[in-house]
Design a protein around this nucleic acid. Structure first.
Lengths: 351, 351
DNA sequence: CTGTTAGCGCCTTCAG
DNA sequence: CTGAAGGCGCTAACAG
């Protein structure tokens, strides 16, 4: 049977003092040693714990932070979540995680329901940033920090990375490894990261002499392993010469989940990775380092982004007057086996 | 600047009616069409949204469900989380996710803080179930559902699976595939799943004629990929003959993350999986189906367990008087490439 | 149908 | 140092 929760009143009655004294004794305000002692005893006997809701109503804050993402299944968000939780819990906040799904309307509903005051602040990392969402963010009644890229003129705290630059790093790395025809599996083109990464790929490809980067681009329907598998299969059948040989020798995937799916597609079709096809992902999720082959990836430092977002949000809650901040976390290439050179010099032994 | 939130009072004033009428108009209780109209207009003009905290205090529930796990990084918990969220959100509840870390004391603190009433119920899936935790669970002031195995006589709702049986399935499958010496990488032995899976392995091994299953058992320090990598490396160096050949031909890992780490350890040491070493995991996480090789795994149906837990919790919140329920979700073997036969019949073509 | 009123449980002036 | 009282924003009787 569920035990019913004792209230301040019952503690007061048992201790033989007023509820005000109980409150003070328990919260460390001025009270005589005698009172404190009796209150403590009474509270312990009843198993009293203050009611969070009543406290919130009185104090005006919920001690909760909301974190909203499109898909909690993506390890990137899990990493952010851990980092955020670690930061905010030190200040006494709980983390409420919401998976909004891909429809921006859901995210907007969520932001608006925040106005109901169940959370004291929000961190959101949306894949699709619509005008409506921006309006909702701007008119929210609690502080909001966005992990992602907002238009420059929007006055909202932002933690962003340069994923276009990340893809450029990947491209250049593959060129350095001697790859000539580098394809690109993007996520949905209507997402913010999708657009940014396509831009990076386009820039890098053109700089390398490609006249039309889009011919080697394959959009996936989502940023997931399953979508990467589909896109990978499609890409591989599309870029075969009539003799069955591959007409591409490298592949950048817009994130690691897509890359994993794509590698699997390559392997299942009998290709050697990286021998026949080098593959680079983006995000550097944990599995990247133990996949077979290990996956070269561009780290977007999810944990660091989460940490920054948490800290900024805490600061803004403390001082709402601050002007909006933008912190930029740089991408970093992490080289592993999946992008090794196709023609290892033979007759030489590894040092 | 953060917009300040309008209250019922201000809406009432603007609409020229009492706050009670506003409340009724907004909540669809009896009110004249005229009143409803004016209240709606006033609320819209002010951008009014009811305060969740005040509402909770009055109504006596927080409309939140807490989900506590040791490590949100494990895809199993993410799967459960999604399933739970889907179930509870239909009834208007938000999901608060907490990562407790491995110390049972943290979980106990969390359970106790639930008594603060910030959540109306809790689902917890603890790796380590101590007596103290059970006491905390029993004395919690809100309904609790445990995903995991509790002692039989404990009167708490439980959703469990039979992971010992799951390991038996894995063992028998490997025997069927012609494997003779089947090793076992367990998680920490002081965890509930660790003990259950060790028991299953012991039973199966003894049934197959092994006198001491412990000689082929290697405990990992955690249920993670990193721990699996370490344990795999250790296991592989330990079970080499003097000529360098492997003295085991199969391996069961207590979960998929460990299995992934172990496969990687095998591959990096030049072994062929499944040629030299067949590997089976437990949990059937998504990556299992796209790892190279694809991982044979025993599904413990995390999504189904999460769904059941959510439904049971909702029922109990609705009718606290119900006697405790136990639902059992059976394990299911999912065969993939990592456990294929070591000696494929040659001279034959696949149909 | 509508307004007034009494709390939900807690914290915090304000007197004493 | 302590008790009484007001009120955070809302809903649910209760009268009218």
């Amino acid at each position: 049977m569920i035990r019913t929760r004792p209230t301040l009143n019952q503690v007061a009655e048992l201790a033989g003092v007023s509820i005000a004294s109980v409150s003070r004794a328990l919260n460390g305000r001025s009270a005589s040693a005698n009172t404190v002692e009796r209150v403590r005893a009474a509270a312990a006997e009843l198993g009293y714990v203050p009611d969070a809701t009543a406290r919130s109503l009185k104090l005006g804050h919920a001690l909760q932070i909301a974190f909203a993402v499109d898909d909690v299944g993506n390890p990137v968000y899990v990493e952010m979540m851990r980092a955020i939780e670690e930061v905010v819990r030190k200040s006494g906040y709980r983390l409420v995680v919401s998976s909004t799904g891909s429809r921006p309307s859901e995210a907007i509903d969520l932001v608006n329901s925040l106005s109901r005051g169940y959370a004291d602040g929000m961190i959101i990392s949306p894949l699709r940033i619509t005008d409506d969402l921006i309006v909702a963010l701007q008119t929210a009644t609690v502080p909001v920090v966005v992990i992602g890229s907002l238009p420059q003129d929007i006055d909202i705290d932002t933690v962003q990375t340069d994923s276009a630059q990340g893809v450029v790093l990947a491209y250049q790395h593959l060129r350095d490894m001697g790859r000539e025809r580098i394809a690109f599996i993007n996520g949905p083109a209507d997402t913010t990261p999708g657009r940014a990464r396509a831009r990076g790929y386009g820039e890098a490809a053109r700089a390398a002499g490609s006249s039309d980067p889009s011919v080697l681009t394959m959009p996936a329907t989502d940023f997931t392993v399953a979508a990467g598998l589909d896109a990978g299969r499609e890409l591989l059948t599309r870029h075969r010469a009539t003799d069955g040989s591959l007409t591409i020798d490298a592949l950048i995937a817009a994130n690691d989940l897509l890359a994993l799916g794509a590698i699997h597609a390559a392997v299942e079709s009998g290709l050697d990775v990286p021998g026949d096809l080098a593959i680079v992902g983006v995000d550097d999720i944990e599995i990247a380092s133990v996949y077979n082959p290990t996956l070269t990836s561009v780290s977007l430092q999810s944990a660091a982004r989460g940490r920054h977002a948490g800290e900024i949000l805490l600061q803004r809650i403390a001082s709402p007057g601050m002007s909006a901040r933008r912190v930029l976390v740089p991408p970093e290439l992490v080289v592993r086996a999946s992008s090794k050179s196709p023609t290892p010099p033979s007759g030489r032994v590894n040092p």
